[in-house]
Amino acid sequence: MNWGKGIIAGMAAFMLFILSMCIYMFNAPADDYDHQYYEKGLSFNKDHSREEQVTKDHAEPVITQNNDRLVIAFAQPATGKVSFMRPSDKAMDRLFKLDSGAGKSAEINLQGIAKGPWQLTFEWESDHKAYLYHKEVYIK
């Protein structure tokens, strides 16, 4: 084998390597980059202060499950929303409105909610203060 054939074979091998890397890159799964990253960063302080408000006011909601109902007891009458997020399937995520009325508890009907682990995010207002609370719950 002479030098010309070796150089051509080396260039062909390098070109095949580059081509295979291009094909691999385009077939790789999509990047899970959060496109709202900067907006969430700007609102972080607001969310953090609402989470601290829960601790400062000892306003953590008490969550109990009775048959097909989830009962949430607040320290004061509250209105807001709760997000049910399923770690294994984003399509199962749900949003419910909360309103305890004059009382201190609210109920959520669990019919149609799959059993298993759920991450709950509570956002509510009580006594003109905003609160944010995260809790992981296992629905039976």
Rank of each mutant, 00 (worst) to 15 (best):
Ser126Pro: 04
Arg50Gly: 05
Ile72Gln: 10
Asp99Cys: 02
Ala28Pro: 11
Ile113Gly: 09
Tyr24Asn: 03
Pro87Phe: 02
Val62Pro: 10
Glu136Phe: 10
Glu125Tyr: 11
Met25Ile: 09
Thr79Gly: 14
Trp124Ala: 02
Gln53Asn: 09
Asn67Gln: 15
Pro29Cys: 00
Leu16Ala: 15
Asp57Arg: 00
Lys140Arg: 13
Thr79Asn: 14
Ala59Val: 07
Gln65Val: 07
Gly10Glu: 05
Ala75Ser: 05
Trp124Pro: 07
Tyr138Ile: 14
Lys56Leu: 06
Tyr37Ile: 11
Asp93Asn: 12
Asp34His: 06
Lys5Tyr: 09
Ile23Thr: 06
Asp89Ser: 02
Glu125His: 13
Ala12Gln: 07
Ala30Asp: 07
Asp31Met: 14
Ile63Cys: 08
Phe44Ala: 01
Ala130Gln: 08
Arg86Gly: 02
Tyr33Glu: 12
Leu98Met: 13
His58Gly: 06
Met15Asn: 06
Gly116Val: 12
Ala13His: 05
Lys140Val: 09
Ala106His: 06
Leu19Lys: 10
Lys129Met: 02
Ala78Trp: 13
Ile63Pro: 05
Val54Lys: 08
Phe14Ser: 02
Asp34Ala: 00
Gly101Ala: 00
Ile23Trp: 11
Met11Lys: 10
Phe14Ala: 01
Val54Met: 08
Asn27Gly: 01
Ala9Asp: 07
Lys40Glu: 15
Asp68Tyr: 14
Lys104Gly: 09
Gly101Thr: 03
Lys56Phe: 04
Ala9Met: 04
Met11Tyr: 14
Met21Ile: 02
Asp57Lys: 02
Gln36Val: 10
Lys115Cys: 07
Asp34Met: 06
Val137Thr: 00
Ala28Arg: 12
Gly116Arg: 06
Asp32Tyr: 13
Arg94Asn: 09
Phe74Gly: 00
Glu125Gln: 13
Ile7Arg: 06
His35Thr: 11
Ser83Thr: 11
Lys40Gln: 15
Thr55Ile: 15
Ala9Glu: 05
Phe96Thr: 00
